[in-house]
Design a binder for these strands. Structure first.
Length: 500
RNA sequence: GGGGGUAUAGCUCAGUCGGUAGAGCAUCGGCCUUUUAAGCCGCUGGUCCUAGGUUCGAAUCCUAGUGCCCCCA
């Protein structure tokens, strides 16, 4: 026990431990037989408008419980506020109304303690709905003092490391994560209404695939073999299209062994959906419809306010090709040389973007796009026709095989979604894998491995299909006006804390 | 990987030119039966991130390191 009294003990905690020790003398200080029958917000909605005469007639007996966030002792009577998952409710405790000794005990309870109280409702002079307690008890002692009530908790590091404290203190933080849940619920509903089947595919894969990214590696002891955390569920979901489900989706974590930033966490949540007998245009339409409906349902308006800018999710999103975007944002470029490797390479050099021997015109185009266009795409915009060179799983365009039938959706200068008509020609796919494998052999850790089973699956025949991936975290950032991905992850990745 | 910012009481923050460490809130003690950041009186509470260095003297200046934040690659 003594060993648990950790290094950051201080006088405030020691005082509370003594109070807990005293409670232990009198029995179990963590009772589990208090039955709450009302939430703070329910009471506000049901009885907030009733006057005191009505409340006295009704004599509503309630049992409330939660964390004591405010404690105001005024001699023989006190006001406290209990916070539960719905909100806060005030409770009045009067010495002479409570059972013998309870009020004296209460004076020793601390802000942060978990309490239960039973009593009837009334309004104070200033009109606040309040429970007049006939009974009050301590349900769980809090040993650590909470941040101060007015300034609250603002220290970013503590907000991320001790999210539980952030959630206790900051309603805005609680609201971010409620909204995150509503976004995902809406998305599920949208897909279910289109008869999509939710599935779960492996997180641990022998051959990581489905994206261009570096994977995390782990090891299976019993089988004595390496395994990789998935970078995308894509190939497995398309195996299920081959299997005949026709419409499947998965909302789950991906893992990418890359840098950490305000836009990147090593693990992040992606929604991927695949629909047979559809093409990438259908997915652009559905994505627009989904985001429109989501904004209405989750935020109550189609206008998304993000970091001082406003975007209208109610309007159709402009669609332009990658080459059109480059031309539009680079007046003066030579439009006749948009696929001239030498021209593009020189341009990249000027931009300071890497140019390697293996890079073709398509790869160089995307570098120029990333450097000169991406950040400028503020309003929701679909960029279409990505080069085949950088789209190893996408179907080539029938009229222009340099590009694929692919799109990415940009909002506020960031990629939010990526979709395309799927490559279902097994021989073309095998050829693309071979090209990726060559890059891999040349030292590109992000290049895809050749997935023989995936080719075998395609050889059984995959119907014409289109798929999409939506970055959930970035979407939640937009909907909650959060500047950093860490603000929308309950437990963002941080360097480990050292406990001495 | 590079650059910038930041780190002081439980929390939020001051700290002047290098000269004994400060405030508000919280805690603790006293008063107070309708408060709303309740009020009044009193007392506590510090590894000034860490390790070196300069100096008679360092929260303050220098060097290195660490965490977090931001920007860039």
């Amino acid at each position: 026990m003594a060993d648990d009294r950790t290094q950051d003990e201080n006088r405030l905690i020691a005082e509370r431990r003594q109070k807990l020790d005293a409670l232990r003398e009198r029995g179990n200080p963590f009772p589990n037989d208090f039955h709450r029958n009302a939430l703070a917000d329910e009471l506000q909605h049901m009885y907030g408008a009733h006057d005191n005469d009505t409340l006295a007639e009704e004599h509503v007996e309630v049992a409330v419980a939660g964390r004591m966030m405010v404690k105001r002792v005024m001699g023989k009577a006190s006001f406290i506020k209990l916070q539960d998952r719905s909100g806060q409710i005030q409770v009045r405790l009067e010495r002479d109304r409570l059972p013998e000794g309870v009020y004296q005990d209460f004076k020793k309870w601390d802000v942060g303690d978990i309490l239960g109280a039973r009593g009837s409702l009334f309004h104070t002079r200033t009109g606040e709905l309040t429970v007049m307690a006939d009974e009050a008890l301590l349900l769980a002692k809090s040993l650590r003092p909470l941040p101060e009530k007015w300034a609250g908790l603002t220290d970013q590091e503590m907000r991320y490391r001790q999210r539980y404290v952030d959630l206790i203190i900051n309603e805005s933080s609680r609201e971010v994560f409620r909204k995150r849940s509503r976004i995902i619920t809406y998305m599920r509903g949208f897909l279910e209404s289109l008869d999509f089947l939710e599935v779960e595919t492996p997180m641990m894969q022998v051959t990581p695939g489905g994206a261009i990214a570096r994977p995390f590696r782990t090891h299976h002891n019993a089988l004595d073999m390496p395994l990789f955390l998935r970078i995308a569920p894509e190939l497995n979901l398309k195996r299920l299209i081959v299997g005949g489900f026709e419409r499947v989706y998965e909302i789950n974590r991906n893992f990418r062994n890359e840098g950490v930033s305000t836009q990147h966490n090593p693990e992040f949540t992606m929604m991927e959906a695949y629909r047979a007998y559809a093409d990438f245009n259908d997915w652009m339409d559905s994505t627009e419809a989904m985001l429109h409906g989501m904004a209405d349902a989750v935020n109550g308006t189609t206008i998304i306010s993000y970091q001082g800018e406003e975007y209208d999710f109610g309007k159709p999103f402009p669609r332009l090709t990658l080459e059109e975007a480059i031309v539009q944002h680079n007046p003066g470029c030579d439009t006749s040389k948009m696929r001239d490797r030498d021209y593009l390479a020189a341009w990249c050099e000027k931009l300071g973007a890497p140019v390697k021997d293996g890079y073709g015109a398509g790869k160089l185009q995307t570098e120029i796009f990333d450097e000169t266009c991406e950040a400028k795409l503020r309003e929701p915009t679909f960029i279409t026709q990505y080069p085949a060179e950088v789209s190893p799983l996408a179907r080539k365009n029938d009229d222009d095989p340099f590009v694929t039938d692919r799109f990415e959706l940009f909002i506020a200068g960031r990629e939010i979604a990526n979709g395309f008509s799927e490559l279902n020609d097994p021989e073309d796919q095998a050829e693309r894998f071979r090209a990726q494998a060559a890059n891999r052999d040349a030292g590109d850790h992000e290049a895809m491995a050749f997935d023989h089973d995936y080719i075998r699956a395609l050889e059984y025949g995959m119907p014409p299909t289109a798929g999409i991936g939506v970055g959930i975290d970035r979407l939640v950032m937009l909907f909650t006006d959060s500047p950093s991905i860490r603000d929308v992850l309950l437990f963002p990745h941080l360097r480990p804390e050292v406990f001495e």
